[in-house]
Design a protein around this nucleic acid. Structure first.
Lengths: 248, 248
DNA sequence: ACAAAAGTGTTTTAACTACACCCATGG
DNA sequence: CCATGGGTGTAGTTAAAACACTTTTGT
């Protein structure tokens, strides 16, 4: 049934191969200003095509795991990170994304906390880059990151997404810094704090952040859209549970 | 190299197969009230699994076409429709979507005009259904339609999507009817018309719709987010060109 | 002339912006 | 006591909701 010749034509007729990739965002202090900025980890390709170039972490889809599980596992394997937020971004299936074979990539995007991001092992083949200074990446990964950035900013503008960058307790100024870093514009502290205090999911604790140079700010807690590990999160504003959130 | 035994295990180890499906929305007059309501075409399955049940139109992904092209072609083949708007919805890749084999479906959603929708051939195996009265569909297609409805309503609320349901010229009341049908609530005609007149993409023509029972309303034209056939559309509000629009 | 939809005006309400100001803490 | 970020107050602007009203057509 499988002659050698049939084998070759079979390979040409093969359906596109399926891959999973992830765009991982974290806030890290800028080297220059020290203010938080957007970073993401990339892996260096050790094989053709695009050997030596940096690329999004990813890999093939095992036939025993869902798309989300595959993205989470892959991310864990390549960077050691466990994301607090993980959602499907888009399926990229252009004909010439990879020079050798046809590849359809289902791309996820993730948010991780800076404490986790600090733990992420950096090596010769895994390195963090500022999202606005990536250089040329392998495949169509520059466009993918651009789209992920657009989605992130979009969700940020009317959403409850910012808290996934932060730990369980945070000051309102920290939330503002997240917004300022992602949207790349400064916001009025007074008005911003009023907006946050008007959202019921943000609740004040009786703790204050000590150790700063000035008046210690109050710590707050986010009580929405968080669920146990690997359990569908509470959808925000009627959104179906296709995005998943993880406790801490 | 391919013994019969290896062949069997090979099939079990096979990567998930890839399929394309499309949720097609159109407005058609309700049988009872005559007001426009949301409808979508389904195809009856003639094979197992789920033989006899209704399902979203779809099919395999040819290796010579992009995901968008595959969705457009498939839609054309099964319903004869050429959509005015076609955008990727989501990639569904749960483990048990299909009882026999693992299938990853990349689902698109489309909007078509009622004139086109009327042309769509109905047959024993293709029929239009009201979006809110579908019954039980094959696979996870009920959930997919639910998600598509959510996305449609979401995009409608802050978007320039409604016009893709309509022809090149329309009255402001017709736009309002689109909103009312999709969002399933009535809107104040006065305020709605003011909002539309404030959007620069909607431009008045000097024509009026004749033949009505009352004062003839002015016809308007939509001048945004339309491009030549098979050419990336003008992104709305900074959105990347991952959705495609087609002239008329 | 009358019904009904097209189209306009006006008042009220809510939300956001800008910015002045007070508070608490480390140095 | 002063610099600085934390935190509050308040007037001005803008957008939307509610609804009364006028206009224009077919019958």
């Amino acid at each position: 049934m499988y002659s050698s010749a049939a084998n070759v034509s079979e390979r040409l007729q093969q359906p596109p191969s399926l891959a999973i990739s992830t765009v991982i965002f974290a806030l890290r202090p800028s080297e220059s200003s020290g203010r938080p900025t957007l970073w993401l980890p990339l892996v260096r390709r050790i094989r053709e095509p695009f050997r030596g170039l940096w690329a999004l972490p990813g890999g093939p889809l095992s036939h025993t795991e869902s798309l989300l599980d595959a993205a989470g596992r892959n991310l864990q394997e390549t960077t050691g990170l466990v994301p607090k937020y993980l959602e499907q971004l888009y399926a990229f299936g252009g004909l010439h994304r990879s020079p050798s074979q046809r590849v359809v990539s289902i791309v996820y995007w993730a948010l991780v906390q800076p404490t986790e991001a600090a733990l992420a092992e950096e090596s010769a083949n895994v390195r963090w880059f500022r999202a606005d200074r990536l250089g040329t990446l392998a495949f169509d990964h520059n466009e993918i990151v651009e789209y992920a950035l657009w989605r992130l900013r979009n969700k940020m503008e009317y959403g409850s997404i910012a808290y996934h960058f932060l730990g369980p307790k945070f000051t309102l100024a920290q939330v503002r810094e997240v917004y300022e870093a992602v949207l790349d514009k400064s916001l009025d502290p007074a008005n911003f704090r009023r907006q946050l205090k008007a959202t019921p999911q943000i609740e004040a604790t009786d703790e204050y952040l000590q150790g700063g140079k000035h008046r210690p700010p109050r710590l707050y807690r986010y009580t929405g859209a968080a669920a146990a590990h690997a359990v569908p999160g509470q959808p925000a504003a009627g959104e179906p549970a296709l995005a998943y959130t993880f406790q801490q």
